[in-house]
Structures are given as C-alpha cells and as structure tokens.
Write a protein that binds this DNA or RNA. Structure first.
Lengths: 336, 336
DNA sequence: ACCAGAAATGTTATCGATAACATCCGCTTT
DNA sequence: AAAGCGGATGTTATCGATAACATTTCTGGT
C-alpha cells in the first residue's frame, strides 16, 4: 500500500531484483562489469516498478544535471525564436532538457543574473545566443569549468561559437543585384550593435567596393516592418534608388509597402532582397528574394560542440560557420 | 586554498557566521523565528562568500524544484512562440526557471514522454500549451499531485486553464464586416483540430446566424501564408465574395496576394480581417485589420494559477478567459 | 525570584543517487 | 596448491539542502 505513496527509488528496484542498489546504478550507467544475467534481472525490475531515476539526486552527487541552460534575449524575432526552437528539439533528441533563461536586455548584469540562475541548477552546459557585443562582454561572468557555446557571437572572441556566415549571405545578395544590372545597391541594416547587422553591412560594402560600385550611405533601423516602412518612405522618393538589400524580411515588407504607396513598382523600378526567408516571404507582394539561414544546422552544430566539451572541457575553441543560401523570387529576379 | 576548489555550501556559511547550518537554512527560507541580529550576520556571511544555494540538493529533499516545465508543440508559429516567450519572462520575474519540452506532435505518447522527463526533474509545476484535442487526452498521463495549468486547451475539461476568448474575437471580426455593409462573411479557418480554430469558427458562424446572414461553406487550411494563397486563389475567382475573415494574419497575407494577383482590390472589392496582430500586420498591403490577442496577459494569468496550485493543490479548477481586441486598419475599414 | 511557555538555535536523520573502497569468487600462473 | 589477478558485486561515505525533534535562551506573569 505504501508502494503507491511515493515513486520507487533505486533501493526498491534493488530489493526486487535481489541485488544491491549500486548494481542497479551500474546497470543504469552501462557500467561494463555487470553480468548479462544480472543486468537483465535489474532491467526487468525497473520495468516492473516503472522506476525512473531521480535527476535531482543524481545532479546533487555528480554536481551536474541533464539540463542545458540557454541564455537568450526575450524576443519573438524570427531568427532568435527559430534558433531556440531548433536547439530545444536537438537537445531533446539527445536526451537533454533545456532551461530557458531570457533577459530583456543583453547587458552584463542581466546576463550575469541569468547565468547564475542556471548555475544554481547545475546545468551541464550553457548556450548563449549572443547577438550583440554587450553579450560577449558578459562571458567573463561564466566560470571556466562549465561548457559554453555561443551562437551568433563575436567570432574574434576565441570562444566556441556557431554562426551563420552573414558576410557571405550579404555578398550573395548584393552580388545578385549587381549581376542583374543595377549600378549600385542600397542597404537598410539592422541595429548596428548586432553581429548579424555588422556582418551583413561588411559583406554588402565589400562587394560594392570590389565591383567598383559607389557605396551609398547606410540606412539603419531596428528589425521591424515599422522601421522598414519609415526607411522605405525615404528611399521611395529617390529616383536613383533601384536596388535595396535589407537586413531582414520584415524590414523588406515595410519597404515594399512604402514603395507600393509611392507607385514604385517592384521589381521593375526597384528590386528588393531580404534576409531570413521567413515562411511567409514567398507570399509578399511581390514574392521576396531573400537569404535563407539554416537555423536547424546552427542549432545542431552548437549542441555537438557542447556535448564535445562535456566529454572533454579542453576540447573548446571550435568555431563553426554555416553557409546561407540565396533564394531567388520575384522581388529581385535574375534579369530585369 | 581549497576555498576556491568548490562553491561554498551552507555549512561554510554557517561556520563563518558562527551558527548552525539549520539557522542558515532558516534565514534563506524567511523562517520567522530568527533573531534580527543573527539574520544579519548570516546575510553578511552569505554575501561575503558569494554563497548560492544548491537547487539540486533542495529539490532532492523537498521533492520539488524551482523549475516549471512547459510542454509545447515545437513550432515557430507566432501564437505559441509568443506565448512561450511571455511565460518565460513572467516565470523569471517570479524566480522560476522554465524548462521547455517541446514535441513534434501533440499525440499521447510524445506528450507522455515529455511529461515524464519533466517529472524526473521534479518540476514544481507544468504548463501545457494544448492547442489541439489530442493534447487534452494526454492529461491522463499527468499525476494529480503536480500543479498543472493548460493554456489554450479544452474549456470543458474542468482543468485549470487560461485562454483567449476565441469566440468573442471571431464575433468581433465578423460583426465588424457585417456592420461595414457586407451581406455575409467567408471564413478561412486554421486546422480544425485546434481549439483556436474551433472557437473562431463557432464565433463566426453564430454571428452570421444571429444576423440572419447566409453561412458560406467553410474553407480550412493550416496556418501558413502558403495555404492562405492557395485558398485565396479560389476566393478571388468568386465575384460574390466581398468579405473574408481569416484565422490568422499569415493566412491573410497569402490571401491578400492572391486577391492582388487577380486584380481584386482590398478593401474596395474584398475586405479582409486577420487574427493575431503580428507586429508586421500594419505593413501588409494594405494594412491589415485584425484581432489582437493579449498573450502577455494569458501567460501571467497562467503563472498566477500555477503558483496558486503550488500553495494549495486543491485550489485547482480555475478558468480564466482573456478578451481579445479588434484592431481596425485599411484592409477592412469601418465603412466602405 | 521562579516557572511556564514561547522564541531561538542546535542535532540528527533523510532524500536518492554516485564515488570510493572492500570483498568475494573463479581462473590462470608458477 | 598457493599466489595473484581481475571481474562481479556489496558496503559505506558523500553530495547539500530541509524535516523533525531536542535543547537552550528569553520572556512575562505571579
């Protein structure tokens, strides 16, 4: 009757199987020195009782849990949200739970607080989605003995990091527009303190310089359709603007509307290229040419790096760069 | 020197403060029977050592952690993603970490697996974002002694639940279109096994019936712009269609494009109302009239219910319904 | 000044796992 | 046949907190 009162513990399994609890532990951890027959007996007992190990107890004694802590800025932006979702899925497949600690701002003290909360939980590893420089500064808060991987952080930090090749994506977008016959390409960037933005600006500028094209003044905005619209209202007034590369698809959406309102046809008068390939980009008016980021690949690569560090903490300092892919649609066709 | 070797534990604090570890525990848990002076001494010792309690140890002895488990379908859909983000923020403010366990499908066995993983972690409570009926079935898997709140689930289940009033939102949208002078309103719904979809369909139909308007055949789709486009291609061919209410904004986007391609002007020929009010809805062509859901309110309400149950498990069975809000823009103005 | 009862603090047991060490057993080796 | 060895298993200590109970120290009332 008191069998029901609480979930079974290792000793209950041991008693039923007629072994010591340590042997049960060995079976659970695939220790080699267990006789096959004993192993099966224990397995049977586990199944019969519906035993499930208590992670808290394990975490207490090993000092590490089956939990991966993620530090991210609280946002519903497509990139970060997708990244989180993909990472969570990858971690689940590997048997890890994911504890999300989001912060309103990526400043040092907020990050420090979230990291501390994660360390209290004795997380097995940390993933920091660090899209601004301020986040990188906070890495000082993270002790050296806990595995960490940065997603989207500062490539020059030397820390293990996975990121999409923003420069290459921007180059592909810009080059595509030049190849279509435009004299130059205007760029509406994201917030300049984001690494993503910086990489895209760099790729855009480099491509123009190499092609000997004029580099127009940089316009920057946040990531919203709203700012895209505001910026688009200006660009629409300038007849010399025939090609625009925007730092994400939502900005592009706002720009498309501003162009539309001013009677400038896309792509006849102005060609537009976005970044991200949000699922609805193919249904903008007109369908958006954009750069797709393989968030799933990034997430899986980050997990792989993290698992590597868990096995051997000194295996750090690997950096993985995932290539993006240009998706050509009507807003910027191959040839006008 | 071995001070550095491991993070300080309660006994270290106790020694420094000259009290027993139990007194430290009392200070930490705001037990009333501690002299003010002792309390301060302990606090000082805590600060000096940078002591932070080990959650695993606490979870082991209390059988419950400072972790809230969320079960959600893996998706980047605006609604679920926003909900998760908002809930995480609310939980963090209340001192809880959130462990996300996402599933590919909301079928019984997947949910059961995720719930088990959460229970292994000895979560303090569970939140199930249960937007389809199949998820509700799986509630049988959840033992009765762990606090649970459903978001978006089956209102008739009797379980504690927080949801947006989908019926009211759909009524507002439909009535708005009727008031603008349309004879009837067509509806493109989401997947019919979602509660959201069902509520919106119900509100739409009721409003038409009460107004004595004809009820057109129901069109259903998934939530994507792609399906919206496909459906829109049909609707655009039917001259009698002058008003469309879609189950979310992305569907509306696809429909807007299909209408545009066929030369049907919005709102002159056809008025369109969406649902969600995604941030970029104001920048569609034309800006979208839609129904805004207060996800933040839902998330906070869910947390409140959960905390209530943690204090007193029998306090269950509260249901909270959050009203939505019609946002009128150009795709369906007040009067044509 | 004394005693009861409450307030403040201390002691010991406990949660459920792994770590470290001890033991037992059967085999090979000499 | 004794010694040595390694595989299989058991025993005991341990992680760091809270729970339960024990003890000491204040109070206030007479």
């Amino acid at each position: 009757m008191d069998k029901i009162s609480r979930s079974p513990a290792m000793t209950d399994v041991a008693r039923l199987a007629g072994v010591s609890h340590q042997t049960v532990s060995r079976v659970l951890n695939d220790h080699p020195n267990v006789k096959e027959q004993t192993r099966m007996r224990v397995r049977a007992a586990i199944a019969e009782l519906g035993y499930r190990p208590n992670r808290a107890a394990r975490a207490l004694v090993t000092g590490r849990s089956q939990l991966i802590g993620v530090v991210a800025r609280n946002s519903t932006l497509f990139g970060p949200a997708t990244m989180l979702s993909e990472f969570e899925q990858a971690a689940a497949d590997a048997g890890f739970a994911v504890s999300v600690g989001s912060v309103r701002e990526l400043d040092r003290s907020s990050i420090s607080a979230v990291v501390d909360r994660h360390l209290d939980q004795r997380v097995a590893g940390l993933v920091v989605i660090a899209n601004t420089a301020s986040a990188t500064e906070a890495l000082a808060e993270i002790p050296g003995d806990v595995p960490v991987v940065f997603i989207d952080g500062d490539p020059s930090s030397g820390r293990p990091l996975v990121t999409v090749d923003q420069v290459a994506g921007a180059r592909a977008a810009t080059q595509h527009l030049l190849d279509a016959g435009h004299e130059t390409v205007w760029h509406v960037s994201g917030p300049t303190d984001w690494f993503d933005s910086a990489g895209r600006i760099q790729g855009w500028k480099q491509t123009l310089l190499e092609a000997g094209a004029e580099v127009p003044p940089l316009l920057s905005a946040d990531w919203s359709a709203s700012e895209g619209y505001r910026t688009g209202q200006m660009l629409a007034r300038m007849p010399e603007v025939t090609a625009i590369f925007t730092a994400n698809d939502h900005l592009a959406l706002g720009i498309l509307r501003a162009l539309h309102e001013r009677g400038r046809r896309v792509p006849h008068d102005v060609a537009v290229v976005g970044f991200d390939d949000v699922p609805e980009a193919a249904y903008f008016i007109p369908p958006l040419t954009t750069v797709r980021q393989a968030f799933g690949d990034v997430a899986r690569a980050a997990l792989t790096l993290l698992l590597g560090q868990m096995r051997d903490i000194s295996s750090a300092a690997n950096q993985i760069v995932v290539p993006p892919q240009l998706v050509i649609r009507e807003s910027a066709p191959r040839r006008l």
